[in-house]
Computed example of a mutant assay.
Amino acid sequence: MNKINMDVNYKTMAGHARLVMLGESNHNTAGYKYEAIKAIKQLKAAGFTHFAIEMLPQSMKEQVAFYQRTGKGFEVIQRYFNDNWAWGYLVPYAYGELVKAARTAGLKIVALDMTLEQMASLDAACSSDNAEAGICKDTHTKRNDSWTNNIVSIIKESNQHRVVAFMHRWHAVEAASYQEGIDTLIQKQGIHNVVFVDFIGGMLCLTEKDCRKGSAEDTPLKQQYFYREGFPYKSAIKSFQVHIPEKRVNSNGELQW
């Protein structure tokens, strides 16, 4: 890994990329959503046009378009987050704030994912054992295929289109040897100017063990906000990690840095 840089600048990280994938290292940390809000504001100013998000299914395309066009109907989107993405304190609300920020910034919002029913059907058709044996593609990989096709269609629609995509890190890059990441899938379709930014740290820590789940940094770095080039796992594209300062809760229930 390269040395840390305290000037967290998403325009610098993006360079001339047509796609920047923002990957959260876990879904439980509300802070990653707020960091993504900062990122999309900077990337909109740098010329990005679309915001694609894992946490909304393509079946909600019309509801998303209505909200985008009128500013009305957001409660339907927030209800979906409340019902399906309650992974931790403030998490559903933070996903909603991210969607609002994308609209306010002027980015076109794109719902990437399948429905829960579609995923259940795919789970039944391909077991993890068969997927690992190469007999079939599992749900995770088919989701990646679908997202890649959607993103590629946007990019190829116009030379001006540039996409910011928000997802779990193990969709952006390979999760397992039989689960190909978007980083390689998209290059197979001729899109090579892609950047991956991985969010780490930022945990709301009830114990020291909880902190270690979000970041393996040494103690002096846990309270630092920085980025550096590189990714400690397999990645087929230029990658960065952004470390968000970790918060703790003291014995009185108060947040502390």
Rank of each mutant, 00 (worst) to 15 (best):
N130I: 08
E62T: 11
N159C: 07
Y227H: 06
I155F: 04
S251H: 10
E132P: 02
A105R: 06
I154G: 07
Y89S: 14
Q68E: 15
I244H: 06
D210V: 03
M203K: 03
H168Y: 10
C136H: 08
E254W: 12
Y32E: 14
H50P: 11
G134L: 09
L204I: 04
N82V: 07
L107D: 00
G71N: 00
D129K: 12
G47R: 04
D138K: 02
I40W: 00
F199I: 10
Y32G: 03
A105G: 04
Y80R: 09
H168F: 08
G88H: 12
E62I: 13
D198G: 15
G202A: 10
Q189D: 11
L90M: 14
K234P: 12
E62Q: 13
G47D: 02
G31P: 00
T184N: 09
V195L: 12
P57N: 02
S121R: 11
A94E: 12
A86P: 09
R18Y: 03
P92K: 02
S235M: 14
F51L: 04
Y89I: 07
Q118S: 14
D183H: 13
W257T: 12
C126Y: 09
P232L: 15
Y225Q: 09
V163W: 06
G47K: 04
E54T: 02
K142Q: 01
D123E: 09
A30E: 11
E217G: 03
M60T: 05
K38Q: 13
T184I: 15
R79N: 15
N144R: 08
Q187K: 09
K11L: 07
A111W: 14
L255V: 14
D210F: 08
M119S: 05
D210N: 13
A175I: 05
M1F: 10
A120H: 14
W87R: 06
E208P: 01
Y32F: 15
N82S: 13
F81C: 13
